[in-house]
C-alpha cells in the first residue's frame, strides 16, 4: 500500500473508531461513577436505551438540544431507580440491573410501535436535524480528563473512592455515604443517557428496536479492562471502537465473519481479567447490613 493509500485507509478508520468509541466512553464514565461508589452497573445498557428513545421523542417535538436534556434526565432517573432498588429494596445489584435492562428494552420497543410504526398514520422514528457527532466526541474526551481530575484530585473524588472501597469505614469517617452514592448513580445515569442521546440524535438520527445492542455491556467491559479508572477505561473504549471500525472497513473484503470481530471486546475483557488482574472497588456489589 502506498502512502496516500494508507492514509486513505487509516484516516476514515480513525474517524470511524472515534465515532464508535464515543458512546462507549460516555457510558463507561457512567459505569465508573456507579461502580466506584459500590453499585454494580450492568444497567448501563438500559439507561442508554431509555436515553436514546426519550431523547429522540423529545428531539422531534422540541429540537435536538431539548432531546439531549430529556435523555440525560431520563437516564438520571433510571440511575436513581437502580440505586433505590439496590439500597432501599435491597435487591441484588445484578438482578436490579437485569430488570432495568429488560424493562428499558421492552418499554421502548412497545412505545416505538405505539407512537411511531403502528401509529395511524405511521410515523418514522427519525429526526430531521442531527447533532454533529464531533460535539459528543469532544465532550466525551474532555469529560475523561475532568473525571480523572475529579476522582484523584478533589475531596469529592476521594470520598467517592472511599465509599466504593468500604462504605462502613467511610461512614465512620463522618461522611454522608448515602449522598455520595446518590451523586454517583445520578451521574452514572446522566452519562449513560448522554451516550444514548448520541446514538439516536447524532450518530444515526433515528430510533430502532434495541438500538444500543450491547454497547452498555461493552462500556462496562471497558471499565473492567481500564481498571475502573477514567484514563484506562477510555483507552480500552478507544481500542474497542477501533476494532468495531476495522470490522466495518473489512466487511466483505476479508473472510473473517463480522460476529467474530464483534466479539473482540468480550474476548479482550476475559483476557484482561486474567492478565491484568484488575482489582474492583472492594465494596462493589456489597449489600449493606
Amino acid at each position: 500500500m502506498s502512502g496516500p493509500e494508507l492514509a486513505g485507509f487509516l484516516l476514515p478508520l480513525g474517524v470511524s473508531a472515534l465515532r464508535q468509541a464515543t458512546p462507549l466512553v460516555l457510558a463507561g464514565l457512567g459505569g465508573i461513577c456507579s461502580e466506584r461508589v459500590g453499585i454494580v452497573n450492568i444497567a448501563l445498557e438500559g439507561m442508554m436505551l431509555a436515553g436514546a428513545f426519550s431523547g429522540l421523542v423529545a428531539g422531534r417535538l422540541a429540537g435536538p438540544l431539548v432531546g439531549v436534556t430529556v435523555a440525560v434526565t431520563v437516564g438520571m432517573l433510571v440511575g436513581l431507580t437502580h440505586l433505590w432498588a439496590t439500597r432501599k429494596l435491597r435487591l441484588n445489584h445484578i438482578v436490579s440491573g437485569v430488570a432495568i435492562n429488560l424493562l428499558a428494552l421492552h418499554s421502548t420497543t412497545f412505545l416505538l410501535r405505539r407512537l411511531f410504526n403502528q401509529a395511524d398514520p405511521p410515523v418514522e422514528a427519525r429526526i430531521q436535524t442531527m447533532l454533529p457527532t464531533a460535539l459528543f466526541t469532544g465532550l466525551a474526551l474532555a469529560l475523561v480528563v475532568v473525571f480523572h481530575l475529579l476522582l484523584y484530585y478533589t475531596p469529592l473524588g476521594l470520598r467517592v473512592r472511599a465509599v466504593g472501597e468500604s462504605e462502613a469505614d467511610t461512614r465512620m469517617a463522618g461522611i454522608d455515604t448515602a449522598r455520595v452514592k446518590m451523586m454517583g448513580l445520578a451521574a452514572s445515569g446522566v452519562l449513560a443517557g448522554l451516550a444514548g442521546a448520541y446514538l439516536s440524535l447524532a450518530q444515526v438520527g433515528r430510533f430502532s428496536d434495541d438500538m444500543v445492542s450491547g454497547r452498555g455491556f461493552i462500556a462496562l467491559a471497558a471499565v473492567v479492562c481500564g481498571r475502573w479508572t477514567p484514563l484506562g477505561m477510555a483507552a480500552a473504549a478507544l481500542a474497542f471502537g477501533a476494532f468495531d471500525a476495522l470490522q466495518f472497513q473489512l466487511q466483505g473484503s476479508v473472510a473473517l465473519p463480522g460476529e467474530l470481530l464483534r466479539s473482540i471486546p468480550y474476548i479482550a475483557t476475559v483476557v484482561a481479567a486474567m492478565a491484568l488482574r484488575p482489582r474492583p472497588p472492594a465494596d462493589l456489589g456489597r449489600q449493606e447490613e
Binding site: 467511610t170 469517617a173 472492594a282
Partner: peptide
Amino acid sequence: TMIPALTALDNVLLG
C-alpha cells in the same frame, strides 16, 4: 477503619 486501597494520608484527610 482505614481503607486499604487509599494512602494513610488520604485516610486521615477523608471527610
